[in-house]
């Protein structure tokens, strides 16, 4: 438990240091409520997907299909509510589709024993294909006002509602992962599946539920983006796949499974969003530099974690 705390501490230090740098170098543009509001809106979508990817990684797998689950849910919900359709029904359709997609991933990974990366690689093509079929290859638009106003209203006049949803879901998932039987089982399955099975855990059922949760989070992300950009498309946000893996790793999730916390991922999301908003304030820096910086950050964090772990084990072995 102590290990995770140190990781969160490290992330918080990075966050604070970054905020200070940003405030000093770009005081007028950075410290503005508008800036924070845009950041909050943007980060809730891929933040939710990163948490989905994160819990799958904790269980020892990975989910590459989150973005396409989100798009598929957005498209199906959009079609349902199009031209004066029923909005609550559409939201329900989106969430149910997300759960079904996630369970399908889980079924492939657990019962059929397909390696998670491949199974979700296949389903990502499949979901994208279904999304293209459903939207006939074009953009779904004509979303009713009643729904899109969700993205423009803000709680207490300042906090965007989508960010509130993000926060609530983080709290819920944190609770699930750290305080319930299911969460503990996910960690155990990720650390050692065989040991988990001998401990009497039904590994397949745990995995199906893990991927289902990831699918549900992606569905919410899809619904949020449907409200924000007022339309849905099958190939929207393909770069988020890589980004969400990056965030999960930055947040301290071990790609081999078993380690990582949800608050860690949430802080990593905030750091990344701040970084990219900050870089956007320099018109001279092309957007593509972001790729470079993120790549370096990912590998840098991995190496730093490695070095710190090594030092800790050395110290521990000295004590014993």
């Amino acid at each position: 438990m102590k290990k995770m705390d140190s990781n969160i501490k490290r992330l918080l230090i990075i966050l604070v240091a970054f905020i200070i740098i940003a405030c000093v170098t770009k005081p007028t543009a950075f410290i503005k409520i508008g800036n924070f509001q845009t950041m909050a809106k943007q980060l809730s979508e891929y933040g939710l997907m990163s948490i989905g990817v994160g819990i799958c990684m904790i269980s020892g797998g990975i989910d590459l299909s989150t973005v396409y689950i989100a798009n598929l849910c957005g498209i199906l919900a959009g079609i349902t509510m199009q031209d004066g359709g029923n909005v609550p029904l559409a939201i329900l359709v989106g969430l149910v589709v997300g759960i079904i997609c996630g369970s399908f991933n889980g079924f492939l990974v657990s019962y059929l024993r397909i390696p998670a990366m491949l199974a979700t690689l296949g389903t990502y093509q499949l979901f994208m294909g279904i999304a293209i079929l459903a939207s006939k290859g074009s953009t779904v638009s004509g979303i009713p006002e009643a729904y899109t106003s969700f993205a423009t209203t803000a709680l207490l006049g300042y906090i965007p509602l989508s960010f509130v949803v993000f926060l609530l879901l983080i709290l819920a998932v944190t609770f699930i992962m750290s305080r319930t039987k299911f969460g503990t089982r996910v960690y155990l399955v990720g650390t050692n599946e065989r040991a988990a099975r001998f401990a009497g855990i039904h590994c397949n059922a745990v995995l199906v539920r893990t991927y289902m949760l990831s699918g549900l989070l992606s569905a919410v992300a899809g619904l949020l983006s449907l409200a924000r950009i007022n339309s849905a498309k099958a190939d929207f946000g393909s770069s988020y796949t890589m980004q969400s893996i990056l965030i999960a790793v930055l947040g301290g999730v071990n790609p081999n499974g078993g380690f990582g916390t949800i608050p860690g991922i949430a802080i990593a999301v905030v750091i990344l969003q701040m970084m990219s908003s900050y870089l956007n304030m320099f018109p001279g820096i092309s957007n593509y530099y972001r790729d470079l910086i993120w790549g370096i950050a990912l590998i840098g964090v991995l190496i730093i974690n490695f070095a710190l772990d090594k030092r800790r084990t050395q110290r521990l072995s000295k004590i014993s």
């Binding site: 990975i62 990366m117 890589m242 893996i245 990056l246 790793v249 790609p255 081999n256 820096i285 092309s286 957007n287 593509y288 530099y289 972001r290 790729d291 470079l292 910086i293 993120w294 790549g295 370096i296 990912l298 590998i299 991995l302 190496i303 490695f306």
Partner: peptide, 30 residues
């Protein structure tokens, strides 16, 4: 070097380096 020296999962490392290469190609070299 990164994969062998630190024994990191190759998927994550190559994701990172491909992001770096793409940044160099489209950002630095335009």
């Amino acid at each position: 070097v990164i994969i062998v020296r630190y024994k990191f999962p190759s998927l994550i490392v190559t994701l990172g380096t491909s992001s770096i290469f793409s940044g160099i190609l489209l950002g630095a070299f335009e």
